[in-house]
Computed example of a mutant assay.
Amino acid sequence: MKKGLKALLVSLLALSLAACSTPAKDPAATPGGDAGKTEGDKIVIGVVVPSGDHGFTGESLAHAKAEAEAINASGQNIEVIVKDGLEASDQITSIENLLSSSNPDVIVLWPMEGEALRSAAQSVTDAGVKLVIYDRLIDGFTADTFVGDIMGDNVGIGTQMGNYLTTFYADDDAVNYLRFIGDASTVGVQRSQGMDDVIDPAKFVQMKETFVTNWSSETAQNQMEEWLAGASKDEIESLDLIVTHDDEIADGIMNALEAYTGGADLSNLKLVTSIGGRKETLDKFENTKLGVKLITYYFAPGMVREAIRLGIASAQGTDYTGATLTDGVYLIPTFAISNAGGDVKFDFEGYRGSDIFTERYSIFE
């Protein structure tokens, strides 16, 4: 990060944290349910996230480290310790080490696998340490010191997507589509359910069982290539829509479509839906020679910063306003970005010029 930008971010963060440190009027209503540490005591936040050197996970780790660096340099007497690992077992070890050596007030956990981390999460709350779970739920987890889950609004994304599709294809009698998801976790289930609850199942017809990509662009590309190779000409030419759950999945699908030489006409395919707001994906859809457009819903690596901020608010006993508390879950709001028009917050140019885009890509400065 350039020194000037880094200094500015640190300064702004210090002001933000100072503003957030005002005690809430009703401590019982704050995350964690108490007034936090007394003034002068250092607040320690442990952050346990998956490892990654590229894509969403890699950028998320970079944002977590950048947030920790800025907070630790802010002069707010707060220490954020970030631990990452490739496997659930690595995360379990990180939690054990934090509890035994760092005396944390809060642990923010982004579990690799919910069930595999259940016992470790329980060990955090058994130790009287507050726990924030980010992105992936541990189903049914409760404890006195469990602050709550915080995640992107996956159901809301699916609902917005379904409503957009209903309007976009309003003049069509039938819409044939393929669906590509990341995995079968709560993330994929919620996104699919949100969409399915609002579209007309008699009109929107899924042509093949859902493809599970494991969040891999390469896997999605291979799956699309295999479908194109095995489908009839009529099936390919009847494809109206491709639904995906991630920008990198959409990139892989576009690679397959752009390389297709099988002879079927792809012009009936008008739209790919996605989730992310990734600049490389926007570039791909701007430069493609196919007529297909993109609508993607903001779900950025920088959202992990909000989980850390919730942890700090919980430790301080102050109000947290970065997400909307809905049915016990803090949901980070989303918005639509598209070059297909319609009811969206940003077109591509507007999104690139926004403060949200600037923060997301500040880690590359």
Rank of each mutant, 00 (worst) to 15 (best):
168 F>G: 02
149 D>N: 12
183 D>L: 03
187 V>N: 10
171 D>V: 07
169 Y>A: 01
125 T>Y: 09
168 F>Y: 15
95 I>G: 03
147 V>Y: 06
126 D>M: 01
182 G>R: 05
182 G>P: 04
217 S>Q: 14
170 A>M: 07
153 D>H: 08
122 Q>G: 13
119 S>M: 11
108 V>W: 04
173 D>S: 15
185 S>F: 10
219 T>V: 15
120 A>V: 08
108 V>S: 00
188 G>S: 12
133 I>V: 15
133 I>G: 01
120 A>P: 03
198 V>D: 10
136 R>Q: 12
159 T>W: 01
143 A>V: 04
193 Q>C: 02
214 N>M: 07
190 Q>L: 14
181 I>M: 10
208 K>T: 11
142 T>F: 04
112 M>K: 11
116 A>H: 02
158 G>S: 09
114 G>P: 05
215 W>K: 02
199 I>V: 15
195 M>R: 14
174 A>Q: 15
143 A>C: 09
200 D>N: 12
144 D>G: 02
172 D>M: 12
174 A>V: 15
106 V>H: 04
211 F>E: 11
110 W>R: 01
107 I>Y: 02
151 M>G: 01
193 Q>S: 14
132 V>F: 09
101 S>A: 13
172 D>H: 12
188 G>P: 03
206 Q>T: 00
152 G>E: 09
102 S>G: 01
110 W>D: 06
197 D>Y: 04
217 S>I: 01
180 F>I: 03
211 F>W: 03
126 D>W: 05
190 Q>M: 14
103 N>K: 15
129 V>C: 08
221 Q>I: 00
105 D>I: 07
146 F>V: 07
181 I>V: 13
148 G>W: 09
199 I>L: 13
123 S>A: 13
95 I>D: 00
201 P>H: 08
218 E>H: 08
218 E>W: 06
146 F>K: 03
143 A>L: 07
94 S>D: 15
198 V>W: 05
121 A>V: 07
111 P>C: 13
137 L>F: 08
133 I>E: 06
128 G>V: 10
175 V>L: 06
97 N>K: 11
204 F>P: 00
189 V>P: 00
155 V>F: 12
198 V>F: 08
95 I>L: 11
98 L>G: 04
112 M>D: 05
124 V>P: 00
100 S>P: 01
103 N>T: 13
207 M>C: 06
137 L>H: 04
174 A>H: 11
97 N>S: 13
192 S>C: 06
130 K>C: 00
172 D>S: 14
185 S>Y: 08
193 Q>A: 14
202 A>R: 03
148 G>S: 11
161 M>V: 04
117 L>W: 08
161 M>R: 13
205 V>W: 01
136 R>N: 13
138 I>C: 10
108 V>Q: 03
109 L>R: 05
179 R>A: 11
118 R>K: 14
110 W>L: 09
159 T>C: 04
200 D>V: 08
112 M>H: 13
98 L>H: 06
122 Q>N: 12
117 L>C: 07
215 W>S: 05
195 M>P: 02
220 A>R: 05
207 M>R: 06
189 V>I: 15
218 E>F: 11
154 N>A: 10
210 T>R: 09
214 N>P: 02
153 D>N: 14
115 E>R: 11
180 F>Q: 02
